[in-house]
Amino acid sequence: MPIAISEKTIKREFIEKIASLSGQDINRCFQCGTCGGACPMSGEMDAMPRRIIRMAQLGLEEAVSETRTCWICASCHSCTVNCPRGIDLARVMEAIRLLTLRKNENMVEPSKMPAETVKEMPQIAMVSCFRKLTS
């Protein structure tokens, strides 16, 4: 799918926020795609991490927010340890998540979880899920 880039589409504030939250220089990325190859969840993602980084470099905030990549990420750090450019992609994914979560929006709703699911889940599943996917 082609992406149109113009002065209007480049959200500078978005680029700066990603940089400050993640502490990463995403301009180092040269689009090798190692991250997607190392990602265990990439088969389940609608956009590869490489693509997300490219869109973020170009400040395409809306295009990034339309993908589910950061919500499928399990913070396993495979991309991080394999990136030949030394970008900690797990931190970039977290930064993208936080831009939504910090608007008091949840990606899972604790109050709507079925009782049976809560009862069977190990506590660490609940805690980690809420930390990564609730506001």
Partner: peptide, 12 residues
């Protein structure tokens, strides 16, 4: 588990 299911926000 009964308490966890009634108050899942515990894990927040």
């Amino acid at each position: 588990e009964s308490i966890h299911a009634l108050y899942p926000e515990l894990f927040r």
